[in-house]
Amino acid sequence: MRINLSSVPVDDQEKAYQFYTKTLGFQKKHDIPMGKHRWITVVSPEDPNGTELVLEPDEHPAVRPFKSALLEDGIPFTAFAVEDVAAEHKRLEALGVKFTQPPTEMGSMVTAVFDDTCGNLIMIAQGGME
């Protein structure tokens, strides 16, 4: 068994697609029409055959209250590994990305948390998670 997919619940798939590709820099793996929604997955250019991230519609009525509760407390929905959190923070902030936590040393790790504009907070981390 292996983990080939992970998903984030997004409030707008097209907006999410733009943010996750143009701003974060992931690339499209699949984009298949599925009725009123799409099956969209993106991958890291550093690992194009690796785990795919599904940009999943957050339509189920239980999802939005769950997401707001996480957002209010600053809790990231998921985390991505980066080489250099400070450099990513600088790059993303210049692109208008809003951080709820700037780069912070947490033991042997450095982490930061940003808003994905689709109703989720995402953590980026270096060290410790490898």
Binding site: D73, G74, I75, Q101, T104, M106, G107, V113
Partner: peptide
């Protein structure tokens, strides 16, 4: 700080 950041700092530091 958010609650999440505070909790992380309390654990890690």
């Amino acid at each position: 700080q958010s609650l999440f950041e505070l909790c992380s700092r309390l654990i890690m530091k």
